[in-house]
Design a protein around this nucleic acid. Structure first.
Length: 594
RNA sequence: GGGGACGUAGUGAAGUGGUUCAACACGCCGGCCUGUCACGCCGGAGAUCGCGGGUUCAAAUCCCGUCGUCCCCGCCA
C-alpha cells in the first residue's frame, strides 16, 4: 500500500480527467468477464465506475483480474479514457468514461455475501440486520445515513448561529417516577442502588436555564423501555432545545426556522411558514387524532343532532346517554366491496369499535343496513352536513367522544392511505397546541400528566387546577408532520408553588416529590427564569425526509421489535463475577430460561 | 400482556396428504467468449422444508408446542 495512494473517489472522475493516471480503491460491485476483455465495476461510498482490464494494457494484470470476485477489496491504477459514443452508459454518473487498468492489487478477499449489495433487493430484514455491515454498503442505506449526518451539521450550525450553547448532560442519572419505564444501571460502588438512563434530559436542561445559559441545545440519545413500533425504538435521538424568557411563539419560531433551514439545505425544499396550527380540541374534533395527517380532507362531522331522534336505536340511545355520533364521507368510493367494508369493520374493532355503520350512496338510492331507519328529513340533513353526492360512502361511529374520535380518526388515515388520497411528496407541518394538562387514568385511579409534570398550565386555567383538573389546558405543543409527531415541547413551570401543586394533583406526595424531584424544586427557589423548550424525534424526522417507512432504515445499528441486536446478539447473559460485583442475584424462576 | 402475517438451497420463492414433491429465478462453481454494463452461451454443485413432538401405511403439507422476524392494540409523561 505504501506505493499506492488513492487519488480519487470513484465518482469524482469526469470527462475532464481523461488521460490522467488515477489510483482507486473500493469494492468489486460486479465482474463481467469476456475471457479477453474484463470489466469490473468498482464501488466506493460515492458510487460506481467501470474499470477495464485489457490484455494489451498489461497481460499479467489482465490475467489476475479473472480471479477477482464480488466484494473483494481492490486497489487499481490506470488511465481514464472516454468511452466510445455507442458505449456510453447513461445510468451511471461516470458512464461517459472508464479506467483502463494496468495495476491491480487485491487488498482483501471476501466470502460470497448473503445478499447482493445493491438497492431494491428482495431479502428479509432479519438477514439484513444480521449482516448489517453489508446492508450498510447499499447505496440507499448510505444515502439515509448521509442525510442524517447533514441534518446534524445543519442543526448544529443553525442553533449555534442563533446563540444556542451545546451542553452534554449525564447518561447515568436518577430514576424518576412518571413517564416511560426506565432503563436501570446498577451501581457497583453503591450496592442495591441504580442509575437510570435518561428518557430525555428534561430536568437538566431546566437546571441549565436556572444557571443562566439562556439558550441550550443538545443532539442526544434518549432511552425508554417500552415496546417497539415501526417508528419507535427504545434508544433514539432527540434534538433537545431549551430557552429562557420565552413564550410559545418564540419556541415555535425557532423550531420553524430550524426546520426550514434543514429542509432547504438537505432537500432543497422551501417549506411555507408560519406552520398551520390547531388546538388539541380542534384537531381531535375535526380529525379524531392529536397528530392528524392534514394532507387530505375527509374531516369528521358531528351528526349527533341530526340522528339523535332517528329510528335507529343505537344512535338515539348513544345520543340520549350523552355520547356523540360522527361521520366521515369517503368521496366517490362507493365501489368499495362488501368485503372491503367488512375489512374496515374489523379494522375499527382494533380501536374499540363494536361495529361500523356505513351508507353507500348509489345513483339509484342509498344502500346500507341502516338507511331504512332515517326519515327523508334526516337524510336531507345528512346530505347537507356531509356534502353527500352520488358515489360517496359514509361511515358512522357512535360512542363517547374519545372513542368516536379515535375510531374515525384511525379509519380516516387508513382510508386516506388505501385510497391514495395522500400526496406523498408533500411535507405538511402542523402545530397542535393547548393540550389538556391531565388525563385521568382509570388503571391508576388518578390524574397523569399528558405531556410531563413540569409543563406550565395556561394562565387563565390556573384557578381550575383544584376545582376541575381535567379542564386545565397545558402550555404544551406538538409539531406534527404528515401524521407523525416529530417535535414536542412546552413552556415549563418556573414557580415552586405551582410545581408543588401539580405534583400534588398527580398524586405525588410531598415526601416523594422531595425525594424524587427535590433538586428541581430547590432550584426553582433560586431565581429560575421563565423558560420553555422543545425536543424532536430526530429519527422520525429523518425517516420522513428520506421516505423510509420504518425507523430502522435511518439508524445504523437498530434493534428488532423484541429489543435484540441480530448483529451482536445483545442482550446477553453476563458471568457470575459481574453479577457478584453488582450485588445482583437473578430471580428468573418465573421468567423464561434464557 | 394481546391480535395478525410470515418461516422451504446463500437469497427470493412454487408446492397445502400419495407414484419425478422438493419447481423456478438470482447468486455460487467450472468451461467458452475483446465492448459488456441485470453481459451472453454451455455444464455443475447446493435443501435434515425454522426446531421439537404427535396423527397417519404415508407429512414440507394436518394437529400441538416452541423459536425467530415484521405489523398492530395495550404501553410510549
Amino acid at each position: 500500500m505504501a506505493d499506492l495512494k488513492r487519488t480519487h473517489y470513484c465518482t469524482d472522475l469526469t470527462e475532464k480527467d481523461v488521460g490522467q493516471e488515477v489510483a482507486l480503491m473500493g469494492w468489486v460491485q460486479r465482474r463481467r468477464d469476456h475471457g479477453g476483455l474484463v470489466f469490473i465495476d468498482l464501488r466506493d461510498r460515492t458510487g460506481l465506475i467501470q474499470t477495464v482490464f485489457n490484455p494489451q494494457e498489461d497481460p499479467e494484470t489482465h490475467q489476475r483480474s479473472h480471479a477477482v470476485r464480488s466484494e473483494y477489496v481492490i486497489a487499481v491504477k490506470g488511465r481514464v479514457r472516454p468511452r466510445p459514443d455507442d458505449m456510453i452508459n447513461e445510468k451511471l454518473k461516470t458512464g461517459r468514461i472508464e479506467v483502463f487498468i494496468y495495476h491491480l492489487r487485491v487488498l482483501n478477499t471476501a466470502e460470497t455475501p448473503p445478499f447482493q449489495i445493491e438497492d431494491d433487493i428482495d431479502v428479509s430484514e432479519a438477514i439484513r440486520l444480521k449482516y448489517r455491515y453489508l446492508d450498510l454498503r447499499r447505496p440507499s442505506v448510505q444515502r439515509n445515513l448521509l442525510l442524517r449526518h447533514k441534518a446534524y451539521q445543519v442543526t448544529r450550525s443553525f442553533l449555534d448561529q442563533e446563540g444556542f450553547i451545546e451542553i452534554e448532560t449525564p447518561v447515568l442519572t436518577k430514576s424518576t417516577p412518571e413517564g416511560a419505564r426506565d432503563f436501570l444501571v446498577p451501581s457497583r460502588l453503591n450496592p442495591g442502588q441504580f442509575y437510570a438512563l435518561p428518557q430525555s434530559p428534561q430536568l437538566f436542561k431546566q437546571l441549565l436555564m436556572v444557571s443562566g445559559f439562556d439558550r441550550y441545545f443538545q443532539i442526544v440519545k434518549c432511552y425508554r423501555d417500552e415496546d417497539f413500533r415501526a417508528d419507535r425504538q427504545m434508544e433514539f435521538t432527540q434534538i433537545d432545545i431549551e430557552m429562557s424568557f420565552v413564550d410559545e411563539e418564540d419556541v415555535h419560531d425557532i423550531t420553524e426556522r430550524l426546520l426550514a433551514t434543514v429542509f432547504k439545505e438537505l432537500l432543497d425544499i422551501e417549506i411555507p411558514r408560519p406552520f398551520k396550527r390547531l388546538t388539541y380540541a380542534e384537531a381531535t374534533s375535526r380529525y379524531g387524532l392529536d397528530k392528524p395527517d392534514t394532507r387530505f380532507g375527509m374531516e369528521l362531522k358531528n351528526v349527533t343532532d341530526i340522528v339523535a331522534g332517528s329510528e335507529f336505536k343505537l344512535f338515539s340511545q348513544v345520543a340520549q346517554n350523552g355520547g356523540v355520533i360522527k361521520a366521515i364521507n369517503a368521496k366517490g368510493q362507493s365501489s368499495l366491496s362488501r368485503k372491503d367494508l367488512d375489512d374496515l369493520t374489523d379494522f375499527v374493532k382494533i380501536y374499540g369499535a363494536k361495529g361500523l355503520a356505513w351508507i353507500k350512496i348509489n345513483p339509484d338510492g342509498w344502500q346500507s343496513p341502516i338507511a331504512k331507519f332515517f326519515s327523508e328529513a334526516e337524510k336531507e340533513a345528512l346530505i347537507r352536513a356531509l356534502d353527500v353526492e352520488a358515489g360517496d360512502v359514509l361511515f358512522f361511529s357512535a360512542d363517547t367522544p374519545k372513542v368516536v374520535n379515535e375510531i374515525l380518526g384511525q379509519l380516516r388515515v387508513k382510508l386516506g392511505r388505501a385510497l391514495n388520497l395522500i400526496n406523498t411528496d408533500e411535507y405538511d407541518f402542523l402545530w397542535v397546541t393547548h393540550f389538556p394538562m391531565f388525563e385521568y387514568s382509570q388503571e391508576e385511579q388518578r390524574y397523569t400528566a399528558m405531556h410531563h409534570p413540569f409543563t406550565a398550565p395556561v394562565e387563565e386555567d390556573l384557578d381550575k387546577l383544584e376545582t376541575a383538573p381535567g379542564e386545565v389546558r397545558a402550555r404544551a405543543y406538538d409539531l406534527v408532520l404528515n401524521g407523525h409527531e416529530v417535535f414536542g415541547g412546552s413552556i415549563r413551570i418556573h414557580r415552586r408553588d405551582i410545581q408543588e401543586k401539580v405534583f400534588h394533583l398527580l398524586g405525588i406526595g410531598q415526601e416523594e416529590a422531595e425525594e424524587k424531584f427535590g433538586f428541581l424544586i430547590k432550584a426553582l427557589e433560586y431565581g429560575a427564569p421563565p423558560h420553555g423548550g422543545i425536543a424532536s424525534g430526530f429519527d422520525r424526522l429523518i425517516m420522513i425526509m428520506t421516505g423510509a417507512d420504518n425507523i430502522r432504515d435511518v439508524i445504523a445499528f437498530p434493534k428488532t421489535q423484541k429489543a435484540t441486536c441480530l448483529l451482536t446478539d445483545a442482550p446477553s447473559k453476563v458471568n457470575r463475577q459481574q453479577l457478584l460485583e453488582l450485588a445482583i442475584r437473578l430471580d428468573t424462576e418465573n421468567k423464561k430460561e434464557n
